[in-house]
Design a protein around this nucleic acid. Structure first.
Length: 578
RNA sequence: ACCCCGGUAGCUCAGUUGGAUAGAGCAUCGGAUUUCUAAUCCGGCGGUCGCAGGUUCGAAUCCUGCCCGGGGUGCCA
């Protein structure tokens, strides 16, 4: 009577149902591997259902109900299953044994992995995320890669993968030619002293604008870049200054967000290998000269040609990314490399991946992309000046939550109020981003990004804090109780709902990780917290009779464990009081 | 012109990869606190799932065409 450590519930039941179909239709040729069991949408139909009888009907030329009926009649019930029923056109509904659920929950409560299979054990993945550009402040458009990437990072680690997180900052691109020209001719030294990053951004934008209208200026920018890339002493010194200033600023934000990286290797880290990459491509006959540039044609893949060396001799992003793949493969032998960027880079990565395949690179390459952040009335753009700085967003989030903490917990020490406001504010911002499908178009609104009620980060944190409080009160009132002596009993329907939800945690995490979708975890946690809130509001536990009381407090603690772990996977903190 | 994505309630978004009566939050209307934290709970209102065909037992989900919006398409990243 236990949840297998290497298999999640849906899989176990699917395997069982498959065997049942096979033993019912021994003389029938059919691909039984497609038989699966999925959670029901409605508890009146049991906890799981199998829909394959309907699909089989035309192949077997029998009525779907008849097929379902034959399977059910001869069925050998799985240890976890109370009963199965045929319903509607031919659904097979599966009802779990309450007692089995109780013991499965008890086992889950006792395990640090919460019965999530460690499928990543022995596998290495590199995750490349956040990757801001030097000399540009992080605005709200940059937050998605950081938060989604960090969550994917956390999920992989939890599944046992060895994760190497790498912040591939943009520290070696064309922008440096533009910035150096701006620095030489447009700099306001006083402004650089007082707010360096803003001044760097200003000269970048000003220089870029100038270059758009003035071809000669742009040529000079390119020339400065070539000088830098050739190792010119003066330009190198400027470059180092820009990078250091920016890294300090990024670090401050990462600290607030609770994000850290194993490596921060910018594009510059690979700069000495760019020539070798191009040479190798030429050697293999993959790259050829065209209009003065060196390009890789990808006609076979139906992709546009990819330039790996510009006609002025400079290298670009593609070359750098190819060198990065080679370097990572040589250094870590990863099973896969995951990139988390916005949607604009889809074509770029398709080209890079295609070239890697042509070069015989073994590693699995995966691009996780997300939609650009937009404003309700306009497209987001640095040059339009309608950006919202990331720090401003975080400040506002903490400010709004502090106001609520002060109102709802006036007796809390001020230091704690501030700490809570920080956790809750940052949690709200992260949850707002993680709870939507990454590929949707995202429209930024303050009220959505900073939602503190309803489907929000604080809602989940609140549910957790309530449980922490219940546990403290229980320990206070019944100091000598040995709560583990009492079994978890699922009496009320809402308790059963909670149990079903909890038992779905492993498969939710597994699926979310394999599909790179933290939003699935967020959705699951909201569902769980909502069910818990109903339970909390409508069922007494500290005031329930002995035995029932202990059972319910134990159930609460399983919910707390899952909420805490789930939120941790999203990078959201769980204070005991909010 | 071509490629990728999106279009679901007044607004912001989910939708377990084709399942049973399409769901949340916000807003709005009504109710719940001498009780375990009201950042909560219970209920009402709200829908031609962009449009038109098609595939099948069954479609928001798959295929085709069109409309609208976003992004991209050899010397930016």
């Amino acid at each position: 009577m236990s949840v297998p450590a290497t298999n999640v519930l849906s899989d176990v039941l699917s395997e069982w149902m498959k065997t049942m179909f096979e033993s019912t239709f021994t003389d029938v040729k059919y691909d039984f591997s497609q038989i699966t069991v999925v959670p029901t949408g409605d508890s009146q139909f049991g906890e799981f259902q199998c829909n394959n009888a309907m699909a089989m009907a035309k192949d077997l030329k029998k009525s779907p109900r008849q097929i379902a009926q034959s399977v059910v009649e001869g069925i050998d019930l799985h240890e976890s299953v109370e009963k199965v029923e045929v319903a509607g056109p031919g659904f097979i509904n599966i009802y779990l044994k309450t007692k089995w659920m109780s013991s499965a929950l008890t086992e889950m409560a006792g395990r640090d992995d919460l019965c999530v299979p460690r499928i990543g054990h022995g596998h290495t993945v590199v995750i490349d995320y956040s990757s801001p550009n030097v000399a540009k402040p992080m605005h709200i458009g940059h937050i998605r890669s950081t938060i989604i990437g960090n969550s994917i990072d956390r999920m992989h680690r939890f599944l046992g993968y060895k994760v190497i997180s790498d912040n591939h900052i943009g520290d070696w691109g064309t922008q440096f030619g533009i910035i150096i020209m701006g620095y030489r001719h447009l700099l306001d030294k006083v402004a650089l002293e007082s707010s360096p990053i803003e001044e760097l951004e200003r000269i970048y934008v000003a220089s870029y604008e100038k270059g758009k209208a003035d071809e000669e200026w742009m040529d000079k920018c390119r020339a400065e870049l070539v000088k830098l890339q050739a190792g010119d002493v003066e330009n190198m010194q400027l470059w180092r200054q820009f990078v250091e200033l920016s890294l300090g600023e990024f670090e401050r934000i990462y600290k607030r967000l609770g994000v850290s990286f194993d490596h921060v290797r910018g594009e510059s880290y690979y700069r000495d290998r760019l020539g070798d990459v191009v040479a190798e491509l030429k050697e293999r006959g993959l790259a050829t000269e065209s209009e003065g540039a060196i390009v890789v044609f990808l006609d076979d893949e139906k992709l546009p040609a990819c330039i790996v060396r510009k006609s002025d001799g400079g290298y670009n992003y593609a070359t750098s990314d190819l060198a990065t793949v080679e370097s990572r493969v040589a250094a870590y032998s990863p099973e896969k490399i995951i990139y988390v960027t916005d949607e604009r880079q889809q074509l770029h990565f398709r080209q890079i991946f295609a070239i890697c395949r042509k070069m015989g690179v073994r590693v699995e390459l995966h691009h996780v992309w997300f939609g650009l952040m937009r404003l309700p009335d306009a497209t987001f753009s640095t040059r339009e000046g309608n950006v919202i700085k990331l720090e401003k967003l975080l400040d506002e989030a903490e400010r709004r939550s502090l106001a609520i903490v002060k109102e709802s917990s006036p007796n809390m020490p001020e230091e704690q109020q501030k700490a809570v406001a920080r956790s809750v504010g940052i949690g709200a911002v992260k949850y707002a981003d993680l709870s939507q499908n990454p590929q949707s178009l995202v429209t930024f609104t303050w009220d959505k990004a900073l939602a503190l009620d309803g489907n929000s980060g604080p809602y989940l944190q609140y549910a957790y804090a309530r449980i922490a409080s219940v546990q403290d009160k229980y320990a206070e009132r019944f100091p000598n109780s040995n709560i583990k002596k009492y079994p978890i009993e699922l009496i009320e329907p809402v308790e059963r709902d909670l149990a079903v939800k909890l038992l779905q945690f492993p498969e939710t995490v597994l699926r979310a990780t394999l599909s790179y979708k933290p939003s699935s975890v967020a959705e699951y946690l909201y569902d769980l917290a909502k069910t818990y809130s109903t339970f909390y509001q409508n069922v007494p536990f500290l005031k329930a009779e002995p035995g029932v009381r202990e059972s319910r407090v134990r159930l609460c603690s399983v919910v707390a464990k899952v909420l805490r772990k789930g939120l941790e996977l999203l990078g959201i903190e769980t204070p005991d009081r909010i």
